[in-house]
């Protein structure tokens, strides 16, 4: 059986459908991403898999163990890094690590191999209280604490949120190295660009999975032609394009706007030039995960 199996999970909080018919599996050594904004249901799903919350309906297994019946066994086997920083702020880096090792009846020394790469980066600060670390350092320590008992499955809930691009890149490099140790990793993120770093992803919004596949397959399946637009006055360009009858969608994408149209670009560009736009650049653009995500969001017309 696959290390993580989720079958038709539902969870309701009052009137809000936090999770709606969620199903997927994660294979051995697979890095699986839950991609979606706050409120998509990612953390609720983690809490169910980490045996901290009961689903209303559906079934989930971790290492072949049932998340409801076998919760004690699961808790010993998984490493869980919650979205909110949950280490002891008043304990030092080293104390936190020893604390988590002790809870799991092990020692830092016994599993040091697994965390060496990561721990060495924060070792210079080992006597600093965890609460005084920078964002990136905190995340590295939290990952060490989640790994110190040599878990057979790793749950990482938004490990890179609010972390700067350099620390984010370092964190993902660490996950790639962990993969080589054959630990399946379920990781969530609101940063769409991080989807491409996963083996497979589930795109989530409003408690539902909109699509599951490898990132290249998701992009390849997206058939809508996207055009990149740029001019000297981007704010006016956005407004003019949105007002144009042939333009379906227009979103800012870094230096360019990504535009989908019902006509060819020449018809639109004519009216832009006539409207006084200078420095106009129009070229075909490759869709990315974020383009697909937005298209799926718009198709998901109402919350489930």
């Amino acid at each position: 059986m696959e290390p993580i199996v989720v079958q038709n999970i539902y969870k309701q909080f009052g009137n809000v459908s936090a999770l709606h018919d969620i199903s997927f599996t994660v294979g051995p050594g697979e890095l699986f991403g839950l991609i979606g904004p706050d409120g998509a249901g990612k953390s609720t799903l983690f809490r169910i898999l980490a045996t901290l919350l009961l689903a209303d309906k559906g079934k989930a297994m971790v290492n072949g163990l049932d998340v409801v019946k076998d919760y004690r066994a699961i808790r010993r086997q998984v490493g869980y890094m919650p979205g909110k920083f949950s280490l002891y702020q008043d304990l030092t880096v080293e104390e936190n690590l020893h604390f988590f090792a002790t809870i799991f009846n092990t020692t830092v020394k016994e599993n040091y191999d697994l965390i060496r790469d990561i721990y060495e980066q924060i070792a210079p600060f080992k006597n600093r209280p965890a609460g005084k670390l920078s964002g990136g350092m905190k995340q590295k320590l939290a990952l060490c604490c989640a790994l110190v008992h040599k878990p057979s499955v790793l749950f990482l809930d938004e490990p890179t949120t609010g972390v700067d691009p350099v620390s984010r890149k370092e964190f993902w490099d660490m996950l790639q190295r962990l993969k080589e140790k054959n630990i399946p990793i379920l990781v969530s993120t609101p940063y769409m660009d991080e989807a491409t770093l996963c083996d497979r992803v589930a795109l989530m919004q409003n408690g539902a999975i909109m699509q599951i596949d490898t990132p290249p397959a998701i992009v390849a399946e997206f058939r809508t032609k996207i055009w990149a637009f740029k001019s000297d006055d981007m704010y006016r360009l956005i407004r003019d394009l949105r007002a144009h009858p042939e333009v379906k969608t227009c979103f800012a994408f870094g230096e360019f706007l990504h535009v989908t149209m019902t006509a060819g670009p020449e018809e639109v560009s004519g009216s832009l030039t006539a409207g006084g736009h200078t420095g106009l650049v129009i070229k075909p653009a490759n869709a990315g995960i974020e383009d697909v995500f937005m298209a799926l969001m718009q198709a998901q017309t109402q919350p489930v």
């Binding site: 609101p190 919004q205 995500f293």
Partner: peptide
């Protein structure tokens, strides 16, 4: 804009 969906962010 931390944590919001891509459409809302825009």
């Amino acid at each position: 804009t931390g944590g919001v969906d891509p459409i809302t962010r825009r």
